[in-house]
Design a binder for these strands. Structure first.
Lengths: 226, 226
DNA sequence: GAATATAATCAATTCTTAATTGATTAGACA
DNA sequence: TGTCTAATCAATTAAGAATTGATTATATTC
């Protein structure tokens, strides 16, 4: 390497002798310039080479770091909700939630069961759709949590966030209050009963039937609107 | 309701007539006290009742909101990975991926199929484990994408991110290059073949068997280490 | 005149400080 | 004893200043 790569050579040497902090961050360009005694343009050229080689990554406002750029996994819920539709969401729920119910029948703790039963009671006495939906959300979340699987619960949370962000249009019943004989009442009670009795197959089946009912209602409303 | 519940009655009445902002936030306690003309203690009792009923939720520094407490969806991949283990991840994969494979058999496009076949070829000729894993990642991601379900694909991505972040310890084979008779070869080829032939049941079954093999290998290694 | 160094500026991010807010405690009052 | 008021605490948010990589303009050097 000749003088044309002086900055690069010097930078590599400095990186080799200096052990960096745990996060792999190296000093800002304005400091490195003084440390290495090169101009900022030369330093940036050298950094660009190393970045191109995948040895470091940079970001405005953050700094320069050794290693490979961390993958952005924070695929926003809103972005997903904009590219999907209620039917896809229901399909995903039909895959996830029966399994969660089955696992909940195995692993649910006493406090989980108490919470589920309270949700069912609250739903029966709900005066508004908002109260009804609150209880519904809490119940399904409790089932997920009771499964005991951290990953599945996290996936359920993301699915749930997408569900709430998706545009459901006029699919929702807009009457003032939930009817006293709403189909979900019996299904939710059967679900909680199955989980309480540790009946895995029943918990799976009841949840599956429940979500199929919800899905079929969805399709019926849609075809009626078209 | 008598005077003992005056604050609760007044609060409910105020909530009924007043339409709240879109985020469901209601004024801070210090303001509500002046609006309703009740003492802060009474107000907090009334709020506690409504919170217990699940009609609102509160948090220090944030405020008081109508609706059910939002789940921590910010659960970053790293946070999940720290609280889970390889077995939970495999369980989640066993639930998600066979379904994705079945849907892929229905909805995969020509470019999806080409990509899958290329992955299989790349895996056969992989010189290093890194190349092998790259092809493996791409294949499974292609199956998810080919399912055509945006939500399921997003969930797969999150699961995949967790899988890569989880500490697998010495479960990985550390030999220099993948063996030429690695069990995954045949399974992956059978998977791609089933999807190409639009055989939904076979695609589901092959993926399930594949992941069970992976899981069993995992358990075997673990019990050997103990 | 071309190339490079230096300075100025921009935009994204982080840091710092103050203000807000629900929760808790202590004292006054009846 | 019970309730109201005030003070205080702890968690969060809001806003402005300071950083930092990227870009552009100006000056310098050979």
């Amino acid at each position: 390497m000749d003088d044309a790569d002086g900055a690069l050579t010097q930078l590599k040497a400095w990186l080799a002798q200096r052990d960096l902090p745990s996060d792999g961050r190296l000093p800002p360009e304005r400091e490195l310039v003084e440390i290495l005694g090169v101009s900022r343009g030369e330093l940036r050229k050298a950094l660009a080479v190393l970045e191109c080689d995948g040895e470091l990554w940079r970001h405005v406002g953050k700094g320069t770091f050794i290693g490979s750029r961390p993958v952005e996994v924070h695929s926003s819920v809103a972005a997903i909700a904009n590219r999907t539709n209620p039917l896809e969401v229901m399909q995903a729920r039909l895959i996830m939630e029966p399994v969660l119910a089955r696992e909940a029948a195995i692993n649910a703790t006493g406090s989980h069961l108490e919470g589920m039963q309270q949700c069912v009671r609250l739903q029966r006495t709900a005066q508004t759709w908002r109260q009804y939906e609150n209880a519904d959300n809490r119940l399904h979340r409790l089932v997920a949590e009771a499964s005991g699987n951290t990953v599945l619960t996290a996936l359920f949370d993301q699915l749930n966030a997408v569900r709430r962000a998706v545009v459901w249009g006029r699919l929702r019943d807009e009457s003032n209050r939930p009817p006293t004989n709403h189909y979900s009442f019996a299904q939710h009670e059967a679900l909680v009963a199955a989980i309480c009795e540790r009946d895995q197959k029943a918990a799976f089946k009841v949840m599956q039937n429940h979500l199929r009912t919800v899905r079929d209602n969805l399709l019926q409303h849609r075809s009626a609107a078209e």
